[in-house]
Structure formats: C-alpha cells, structure tokens
Simulated scan of single mutants.
Amino acid sequence: MARLGRAERQRQLLQRIQDDPLQTDEELARYFGVSVPTIRLDRFQLGIPELRLRTQGLARQAIHQLRSLNRQEMVGDLVDLQLGRFGRSILDTTPDMAFERNGILRGHFMFAQADSLAIAVVDGDVVLTGLVNAKFKKPVRAGERIVATAEVLRHLGPRWVVLVVSRVGDVPVFRAKFVVVAMTAASPDWAEGGAPR
C-alpha cells in the first residue's frame, strides 16, 4: 500500500475499524505500513478506544441477545450477535490450552469455540448440535487470538445450517458447517425436534 497522508489514513482507519472492530493496532500498522505508535496516536485523535475496550462494548451488546446458552457456557467471548443471522466470538489462547512439548493449540478448543458460536446464533431456547463437517486448516500456537465468525446459511423448521470460519489475523485456521436443531424447552426430544437422520 502506498504511503497515505495523515488525514486519508485516519479516514481509512476509521472505516476499517467500523467494518471490523476486532483489528489489533499491530494488524492496522502492518496494513497501513506505519508504526504501532502512529496507529495509537491516530486512534486517540479520532476518539477510537483501544481493542480491549472496543471488545468489551461489543460483548455487552451481544450478550443481551443470547438465548440458547448462558454466558458462562460460551467458549470464547461473544462480541457480535444477530440472532438467526450472524455471530462473532474471540478466543485468546493460553499455554494451558496447548500441547506442552510444542505449544500448538489442542483442536478441541477451536471446535468448542465454533460449536458454542453456532448454537448461540440460533434463535431458540434449546439448541443442540446434530451434525458437523469440520476442517482444521492450520495449527494455532498458544498466545494467538482466534476470531470465529458464524453465518446462518439455511433455516428450515427446527433445523439450522450454520457455517463457522475461525481465523488468526487474516489466516483461516478452522472451518465447520454445523447442522443444529432448535427444540422447545418443554419437549427437548430429538425425534420431536427433527434432528438430522
């Protein structure tokens, strides 16, 4: 990217953060080809809070819509939710989530983040996973941040098809298509809920 003047860089910075509020100062600095302190100064001048505060604000808004899970049942932090359409969560990985000898994240953490997000995005009181087609695309190292995005592809009766793509930065690391089933709280039975056969 060609070096931009300050006014144009700030205009584009504002747009990028509006489009994706989960970008780090480091990612933004790489994109614009400037230093991290320059990005922090730009954010300060534009009145844009740091990532931690942006994330907390998004999480407060999203958590009020959550129906199918309790907040404590989510793996990762829910930061965006449009019930029946879209959702996003972040998972900051730690050394205790990884294999001790190589620091690579154990796969069940990525799966659990994606699974809980697929359930969270469905508008229902009782939502269970019926079928999953998952692909681990790239290893994740302890300390990396995983951003998972869920999108409802189809909804027919109690069955929902939800695509979840997890990324570290711009790199896809996990992808799964979930068939989840929403059932009534009074009768959580697979047969009545119409689970996939």
Rank of each mutant, 00 (worst) to 15 (best):
R30P: 08
V173L: 06
M74Y: 01
G130F: 08
D123C: 07
Y31G: 05
D92S: 03
T55I: 15
S116A: 06
V173W: 06
M97S: 00
D170L: 10
L41N: 14
L156I: 12
R9Y: 07
N70R: 15
R71L: 09
V161A: 11
A191S: 13
V179S: 11
S35C: 05
V126R: 15
D80L: 12
I17D: 09
A2V: 13
L117Q: 06
K138L: 04
K137N: 11
F32G: 05
Q61V: 10
A112M: 04
D42V: 05
K135W: 10
I48Q: 09
L81N: 09
T184C: 05
I104G: 02
V132L: 01
V79R: 04
I63H: 08
R9L: 08
R154T: 14
F109T: 03
L131R: 15
R167N: 14
A114G: 04
R197K: 13
I63Y: 03
L13S: 09
P49A: 04
D123N: 10
R11M: 06
T93M: 04
L69G: 08
E73R: 05
R106V: 04
L53H: 14
T94R: 05
P158M: 08
L128S: 12
S89G: 03
L163D: 15
H155E: 12
E100V: 05
N133L: 12
V165L: 12
G47C: 01
R9Q: 07
R60C: 05
I48P: 11
L128H: 10
L28E: 05
G194N: 01
G76R: 02
P196G: 08
Q113F: 00
I90S: 01
N102S: 07
L46S: 12
D170S: 13
L78E: 08
S187H: 15
E151I: 13
M110H: 01
S89D: 04
V152S: 11
V121Q: 09
